[in-house]
Nucleic acid binder design. Structure first.
Length: 555
RNA sequence: GCGCCCGUAGCUCAAUUGGAUAGAGCGUUAGCCUCCGGAGCUAAAGGUUACAGGUUCGAUUCCUGUCGGGCGCACCA
């Protein structure tokens, strides 16, 4: 990987000037500049070191540039620019050889080991098991699944988990709601609980229960538990299936009840107590999170002896750490951000590393149709589900739209636009480029032409070079997106790559009478196809070989 | 009242953890198919990055304050 060679080269340059220390080497930041005129890679190292070394940035930059080891296989001469940047440019030889390397690497192109095998777990969706998944869950599923793939591709040991909140008051309410629906179905009077779950799906669920058993259970004192257990089983399975169809799979579904049953909750409390951060007040047990940055201490065991939500959550994360997870990235809904500080502080109180827990808030989604907000209310049972969304706009399109935006910004999802099967829909743009390349390769094959590097040493068109440069950035884009936990950089890069390909295609005839040139351009096109396909795969979006324009349906 | 997120082109959003001349899509306007897929390409127009200060070589990014939008502020989850 180019990044490695640049870092090593800068280390050698520092050593040549007698400036090399491990601390300074760790300061090296390499980036791909926004402006093409600033080269293919750039570093601000001279400006960062200038003060410490006591030299003007530009003079330091000039010395570093001169001391940078020549590497004609990869780079041209190093340039000093602006207030003290060092800019690197790929050599012509490197660019000419890259498409062949991409074809050889194929599905592995873009992957790296920059994650150093760190064990990272992404916990996402973790919806309450009280009903179908909604559109925020759909957004979290798209982001979470993409993040897992991105981490895996960049050399992390990535795992995924879904935490099922199957303990506590709300699932009791669920059990009562289902029992009431079942009673209603068989004509037995039974009050529907106050604030119960109103959704129509519970009527369907009640109808699917084994009737004789349910009748027997209804009369017993344990009715709530029976209906709760059966409802949970069905609802969790339905969520799992919807997510799988959507392309979001999990290494494990962990149930909160299992954390209780294993004794981990009690053990966690005792461990906290041993750390001296638990005290009793007003009949309840409190954890001193204020010692670790929280605004106030938090109750972990209520006066009635039952734990609050926080304690099992601490226990769950403690359990993750004991299972070897080094970083836990949790994707939570916008209504949970008040919980971040208490949990982080609690985990620190328990002795876990400060950076163990990272929380990404997946912000709310406003569905827009006809310029109007689509109203959703879970209480009233009126909401658009993940399943609805897949049926309406298709899984590829839904995922593309969700991944285009950064997760922690509110999102207006334009259903009308997403449904449109034409050029106004940005989701098709990248897929179209892929299908177009596939088509070109098919056409070339009918003329007996295959990708090859016969013409690599010839004169290259600017658009060809521009495309190679764009493709060369792919590994670094993946690294950056994974490191920043920002999958949305992926579609942005792919849209740019597709545009770069289209420009190349417009200016450069691929299949022509010139056989070596045709082979070279076919190879370049195939390389672009591979990059687009690899990128879309990380997003969980398909890469069609062909696309049919959808039939326009007049409203 | 306190905390968190957000405020960037007419609309929806980017901007590579503080980098160089703030970019895309949609919409608008004007062009480009005897030729490998026109779901494409080219060009134009569109900005005091909500506002006021501060930090420094350099701020959309970090800090303080103000205004506006959203979400939290439980011995619910």
């Amino acid at each position: 990987m180019v990044w490695t060679e640049l870092t090593e080269g800068l280390g050698q340059a520092l050593a040549a000037l007698g400036l090399l220390t491990p601390e300074r080497l760790a300061l090296v930041e390499l980036a791909i500049p926004r402006e093409r005129a600033h080269g293919d890679w750039t570093t601000n190292l001279p400006m960062i070191l200038a003060r410490e070394v006591g030299r003007p940035p530009r003079a330091l930059a000039a010395d570093l540039a001169a001391a940078f080891p020549a590497d004609p296989e990869r780079f041209g001469p190093v340039e000093v620019a602006g207030p003290g940047f060092l800019n690197f440019r790929y050599s012509a030889r490197f660019l000419a050889a890259l498409p062949a390397r991409i074809l050889a690497a194929d599905a592995a192109f873009g992957r790296s080991d920059r994650g150093r095998n760190l064990a990272v777990q992404v916990e996402y969706v973790s919806a309450n098991p009280t009903g179908p998944l909604n559109v925020v869950n759909a957004r979290a599923a798209a982001v979470g699944a993409a993040l897992v793939r991105l981490l895996e591709a960049t050399g992390h040991r990535a795992t995924s988990e879904f935490y099922v909140n199957d303990a506590g008051g709300q699932v009791e309410l669920l059990g009562e709601s289902v029992a009431a629906r079942f009673a209603e179905r068989i004509g037995v009077p039974r009050a529907f609980p106050e604030n119960g779950y109103q959704g129509e799906y519970l009527r369907d669920l009640a109808a699917s229960l084994p009737e004789a058993e349910a009748r027997a259970a209804l009369g017993s004192p344990a009715a709530g538990a029976w209906f709760r257990t059966h409802a949970l089983e069905r609802l969790v399975e339905a969520q799992r299936r919807d997510l799988a169809d959507y392309g979001a799979t999990f290494d494990a579904f962990v149930r909160e009840s299992s954390i209780h049953d294993s004794g981990a909750v009690q053990a966690t409390l005792e461990e906290l107590r041993a750390k001296g951060v638990i005290y009793e007040a007003e009949g309840a047990q409190w954890v001193q999170t204020t010692r670790f940055g929280d605004d106030k201490d938090r109750v972990v065991v209520r006066a009635n002896g039952l734990p609050t939500y926080l304690l099992p959550d601490i226990a769950y994360h403690r359990d993750k750490r004991r299972r070897g997870v080094q970083v836990s990235i949790d994707l939570w809904g916008p209504d949970h951000h008040g919980h971040i500080l208490p949990l982080k502080a609690s985990l620190e109180a328990l002795g876990l590393e400060r950076g163990f827990l990272e929380v990404l808030i997946v912000q709310q989604v406003n569905l827009m149709s006809g310029g109007q907000l689509v109203k959703m209310s879970k209480r009233a049972g009126e909401f658009v589900t993940l399943r609805d969304l897949m049926d309406e706009v298709g899984p590829d399109c839904a995922k593309f739209f969700f991944l285009m935006r950064s997760a922690n910004a509110h999102l207006d999802f334009d259903l009308d636009l997403a449904k449109r099967q034409n050029d106004e829909n940005p989701a098709f743009y990248v897929q179209y480029a892929h299908a177009r390349i596939a088509s070109i390769l098919r056409y070339a094959r009918t003329r007996g032409l295959e990708p090859g590097d016969a013409g690599a040493s010839g004169e290259w068109h600017d658009q060809e070079l521009g495309l190679v440069r764009q493709l060369a950035a792919f590994p670094e884009v993946l690294r950056g997106a994974a490191a920043a936990r920002e999958p949305h950089r992926l579609p942005a890069y792919l849209m740019e790559t597709a545009a770069t390909f289209h420009r190349f295609y417009h200016e450069c005839r691929v299949v022509s009478e010139d056989v070596p040139l045709s082979q070279r351009r076919l190879q370049l096109s195939e390389a672009a196809r591979i990059v687009i396909r690899n990128g879309l795969a990380l997003m969980g979006v398909s890469s069609p070989e062909r696309m049919e324009r959808g039939v326009e349906v007049e409203p």
